[in-house]
Amino acid sequence: MSPAAPVGGRPPILHFDRVSKWYGPVIGLNEVSFQLEPGITGLVGPNGAGKSTLMKLATGQLRPSLGVVTVMGKSAWSAEAKWHVGYCPESDVFYEEMSGRDFVRAIARLSGYGASEAADRAENALLLVGMSDQAHRCVRGYSKGMRQRIKLAQALVHDPELLILDEPMNGIDPVVRRDLHRLFFNLAERGKSLLISSHQLEELERLTDRVMVVARGRLLAQGTVTEIRDMFENQPLTVRIGCDRPRDLAGALLRLPEVLGVELGSGGMVTVRARQPQRFYRAFGQLVLEENLDVTHLETTDCSTQAILEYVLQESL
C-alpha cells in the first residue's frame, strides 16, 4: 500500500509515519504507517490488537515511542491538533452525579468556549445524538446506550474534522443505531473523517466498506473490503450461484482455468471455489451469455469484513 498523495495539496487529516508505541516491555503498536482518507473508515481486529493504542495516539493522549503522528499537518500531541479531533472512548468516563447536559457543557467549556456558546454547542450536540429530552437526568440512571450517546455528544461538541470513535455502537438499540448511522453518514457527507472501531463487523459493514485491519500491533490491511479480498490471490474465493440449470453451469464452470472446485448443493445452488476474482467474474459473465443461463443468485460468501479479518490473521501467521 503506497501512501496516497495529499488530497488537493492539503496535509492528510491523520497521518501515521512509522509509528511504534510500547509500554515498558509491552509493545502496543509496531511500526504503523497510514494516511486516513475522508469519510468513514472501520478499524477492526481482535482484542488486544492495538486498536485502542492507535486511537489514543491519534487523539494525542499518548506520545509515540518512535515515529510521528500528525493531524492536519500538526503533531497530534499539540493543542492545535486536538482542536480538530473528537474522541469517544470505549470506557465510561463520567461524573455519575452530573446530568448529561452539564457533562457535555463542561466538556465544551474545557474546549475553551464561553458559557453561552458552550451551552449552545452542547445543546446542538445533544440534539444530533438524540438526547435532548433526556439530558437533564443524572448520568447514574442512564442505560448503556444513553451513556454511549452522551460520550458521542461530547466528542462532537467542538465540531471537529476528525472523529475517533471507540466501539460507539456498544449497547445501542437498533432504533437509535439507525439514527446514529444517519448522523455518521451526514458527518462524512460534510467532509469529516471518522475512524470507528467495532467488534460488530456486520454493523460496521452497513456504515462503510473501507477498513483497516490491525492485529498484533501491526496494520495488516487497509482499503475497501473487495480490494483487500482480491489481494488474497492464493485464498480461493467462495461463490454461491443459483441457476436454472445447475448441472450445466457446474460443467461449464469447470472449464474455466480460475475455477478450482465446484460443488452441487441443494435447491439448485452451486458453490464454486475460484482464484483471481477479477478474471473469474469477467469469465463468468461471458459464460452466462454463452450458455444462455438464468442466474438467480450470485454471491461471494467470503467477501465480508469478517472473512477478510480471518484471512488477514491467517496469512500473517
Partner: peptide, 16 residues
C-alpha cells in the same frame, strides 16, 4: 449480464 458486457463492466454479485 448482456447489458454489463456491452458496457464493459463486470457483475460481481446478484441477489434478490
Amino acid at each position: 449480464f448482456t447489458l454489463a458486457d456491452n458496457r464493459g463492466v463486470v457483475i460481481r454479485g446478484l441477489q434478490r
